[in-house]
Design a protein around this nucleic acid. Structure first.
Lengths: 141, 141
DNA sequence: TTGTTACTTTGTAATCATTACAACTTGATG
DNA sequence: CATCAAGTTGTAATGATTACAAAGTAACAA
């Protein structure tokens, strides 16, 4: 999944969100490091380049990007939130050995649960856990 | 979804997990209050009946029940884990207005993502967010 | 029934991600 | 380039969860 940095900036302008230096750097980080990072990883990853960056700003920025719908939050473990620049519907697989998160395509509309008729659905999430192919090959399962 | 308390006890015995008073009370609470409670709700709900119960015990108990596969953890929000006595595959819908969690049936095997071939999948989760029917009827959406 | 022992429980303190807050700074608009 | 609402920063607070060590108890055997 390739995400265009320029089009993200256009979206920020459309939504009247200021293009602050810090915000652009966080967005750039997310488009460059497409590995579903945590807030802490973003903070550490940008620290050399933007020494004045504070962790509060990372959280604030992620919060406004979430509100604007430019990114999505992934809650798989209870002790970490990961952020995804890919806002298209897709599933996540977390390897319990190497901890990596893999994307996979799903047709999420296959779930037309009649039990939810009359419900308004804003957000659909699918995630699996297990052991990824390369960890199995390495005998780490 | 009806869960049989007796069969849960048999499972504990099979898995050599001691039937302590506290553990049985937590299990009983989960079978009686089938509303996906948090650890805190379980603790408060049992406090009158088991005044000596500590919150650490609730966490310890939930942890061993999870390990034994008798319950499942639900991570929808980043700031709360909910526990589910129903370990069969099913989806969860969280209403962002009334905060209730609804179950719905899904055929989770519809997801045979070829991208995950060679992966070992241990756990499949599906959750939606939105507004439930009764909150929509009450104009709370 | 009792003794033994390993497993459990408990309360307190620590941890760690996230949020609140108030002073300072800056992007956008005219 | 002046203005000011919005953004940033550091510190302190919050709140769920975990670590730990002392005290208690379930399970098993004799």
């Amino acid at each position: 999944m390739k995400v265009n940095f320029e089009s993200l900036i256009d979206e920020l302008k459309n939504k009247k969100i200021r293009l602050s230096h810090q915000r652009l750097k966080v967005l750039e980080y997310l488009t460059t490091n497409y590995n579903h990072p945590t807030a802490d990883q973003i903070y550490n990853g940008l620290h050399d380049e933007v020494p004045t960056l504070s962790k509060t700003t990372v959280y604030n920025t992620l919060s406004s990007l979430l509100d604007a719908g430019l990114i999505r939050a992934i809650n798989i473990e209870d002790n970490e939130v990961r952020y995804d620049i890919n806002t298209h519907d897709h599933g996540h697989f977390k390897c319990e050995s190497c901890k990596n998160i893999y994307d996979f395509n799903i047709d999420i509309d296959l779930f037309e649960a009649d039990q939810l008729s009359g419900f308004e659905i804003n957000d659909k999430n699918v995630f699996f856990k297990g052991t990824c192919r390369s960890c199995i090959a390495d005998g780490k399962e």
